[in-house]
Design a protein around this nucleic acid. Structure first.
Lengths: 151, 151
DNA sequence: GCGCTTCTGACTAAGAAGGTCAAGAAAGTC
DNA sequence: GACTTTCTTGACCTTCTTAGTCAGAAGCGC
């Protein structure tokens, strides 16, 4: 139930790429602007490339850029690329688990958890993120004072 | 973004305790009915005890029972006891993180993620879980066919 | 005091988290 | 073609977490 450094880095780098207008951006530049260890970041970018989220070119004028328009890439896409499936229970998808006895309805709870995670992650695109114009439903969630309270 | 075996076990054991009407339940009985490795389960129960969620007595007629009424203990309470805070990013609470540049609005996204997780976990009690009568809002989430689709 | 059961700490093996290092391959520039 | 830049890849490292097991101590009921 936590967000790894890797996922956080991946989304931040992707946001930086989404904001870039002209040509490929170098790894070092991404690492600098988001304060991410360069070598670690390049591994992450490679994973993103393998998942078809970014593209890259080497050489003097090389760098990274988004493989698709920023408004078609969601945060869920980026997170899944580096962390794998969202909200798995014991490394298995919740719809495949069978609970017995008094825990029988726990499956529905985990399904609801995943649905609510998806409701945020699959509906915020990189374009939304850099423009700051998050979908209305998400803005409502983040605006509630209670959401900012530690617990 | 995944649910550990420990958290899953803890909730299932707690559900079993919530359903128990008469007297303390032995660790072995819990392990059997939910198919959880006994020794591992006892460590989990001890953590739950330290967090004031269950109580225990040793000896011949010993066992475990809930420290509070089942309708006042939420799944979030149980999960936090064994996994720590929900939806931390890089081991820090989302409200404490400051993002720079194009990732500036990422904080709101993580806050929204946490809010939506809480919306499920803090509103289902152990009593709801064993009776199967989940809160209406959660039932709606789990009823949507799309929520059951892998992805 | 005896048997039962929880309590506690120590240990382990495997994997993930969060990196670092160094060599290689491709692309551009001159 | 030489050189530089930059991505690409694999190997390695340290620390922490996961998912347990084992053995013994301590408390409870009779």
């Amino acid at each position: 139930m936590r967000v790894s450094a890797k996922a956080d880095y991946a989304v931040r780098a992707a946001a930086e790429l989404a904001a870039a207008k002209d040509g490929p951006i170098k790894g070092e530049q991404l690492a600098d602007s988001q304060d991410i260890p360069l070598q670690f970041l390049e591994h992450i970018l490679l994973e993103l490339k393998h998942h078809g989220i970014v593209r890259a070119r080497r050489g003097a004028k090389g760098g990274y850029w988004l493989a698709k328009p920023a408004d078609t890439v969601t945060i869920a896409d980026v997170v899944r690329a580096v962390e794998g499936p969202i909200a798995h229970v014991q490394s298995a998808p919740p719809e495949s688990i069978e609970y017995r006895g008094n825990a029988e309805h726990l499956q529905e709870v985990w399904i609801a958890v995943r649905a609510n995670l998806r409701a945020v992650l699959e509906h915020v695109t990189l374009a939304d993120l850099v423009s700051g114009e998050l979908p209305a439903a998400i803005r409502v969630l983040a605006a509630e004072p209670d959401a900012w309270a530690p617990r």
